[in-house]
């Protein structure tokens, strides 16, 4: 319901369209991409021009002669897959911790909250660099690093919501009925906390996508030749002075994805506020 109300706003609808396009690219990369993203088809070709054999390269090719459009489309798969997976893992950890801290309070809460404070005292990027440099760069380690760095923030949100919901009558009723703690947390508290969490998740997937982009840009991302937007920027930088399109297209890709998610999140937030007012 909230989603439909959100989509009536033009900005949110625009955001949703952008997100859907990128997700479609990720799902159907093999069908949509005109060329193989890993194979050099030709020498460097500038955007909107044809290669020597007459093939059209809409966004040109990179310094290794790989089609940029195809790499962007397959890059969407990398980003959507790893950002989605990493955010989901962070959510599982954050929700479990937040529910436990908000439900039990006391020592559990104090220990978990302190741990969250400690992790949140690092600038996120310093944390990522520390983890990736120590463990090496791979998809699994990116998931681990994102979980470690984002779970505390999710923990704080869930904890605050859980504390609030814990005080309500239906939770007390469930406790008096003798329902188990885990059952109450998962079936009474969590469903009532989903509204704010959905908005946060929308933004957080975007931040994770950006993080993966930044790691790629710093040369700490997924190992080559995986098509990855951040890595494309990193590789193209050396020739950006002469061929700026090498770096501009991947930057447009990541910015548009994040913009879509932000507009969608904004629309959802406004819509749920209106919903609660009505």
């Amino acid at each position: 319901m909230t989603l439909f109300r959100a989509l009536r706003r033009p900005t949110a609808a625009f955001g949703a369209v952008v997100v859907v396009i990128w997700v479609a690219c990720a799902l159907f990369a093999g069908l949509l991409a005109p060329y193989d993203p890993l194979i050099s088809t030709t020498a460097l070709v500038e955007p909107f021009s044809r290669g020597p054999d007459g093939k059209l390269f809409l966004l040109g090719t990179d310094m290794l002669g790989r089609d940029i459009l195809s790499r962007l489309i397959f890059g969407a798969r990398t980003v959507v897959l790893w950002a989605g997976l990493a955010t989901a893992t962070a959510y599982v950890v954050g929700i479990v911790g937040g529910l436990a801290a908000g439900f039990y309070r006391g020592a559990v809460d104090q220990i978990l909250s302190f741990a969250a404070n400690v992790i949140l005292s690092f600038p996120v990027l310093v944390l990522y660099i520390l983890i990736i440099v120590t463990l090496g760069s791979s998809g699994a380690n990116i998931v681990l690093a994102v979980t470690f760095a984002s779970a505390p923030a999710i923990f704080r949100i869930v904890r605050a919501l859980a504390i609030e919901i814990r005080e309500q009558d239906f939770v007390n009723a469930a406790i008096t009925q003798g329902e188990g703690a885990i059952r109450i947390m998962l079936f009474d508290i969590l469903p009532n906390a989903t509204g704010p969490l959905v908005v946060d998740a929308c933004l957080r997937v975007g931040y994770t996508a950006i993080t993966i982009g930044i790691l790629g840009f710093l040369g700490l991302g997924l190992p080559p030749p995986t098509p990855d937007w951040g890595t494309m920027v990193n590789e193209g930088r050396a020739m950006a002075m002469v061929f700026p399109y090498l770096v501009i297209f991947p930057c447009l890709a990541i910015s548009s994805l994040m913009l879509g998610l932000s507009l969608l999140a904004d629309g959802l937030r406004e819509a749920s506020r209106e919903g609660s007012r009505a």
């Binding site: 840009f217 951040g230 990541i254 994040m258 932000s262």
Partner: peptide, 15 residues
């Protein structure tokens, strides 16, 4: 302001 906060630093540096 939504647009500027959506563009990561390395991308706005490129633009």
């Amino acid at each position: 302001s939504v647009v500027t906060t959506s563009v990561p630093e390395f991308a706005s540096a490129v633009f």
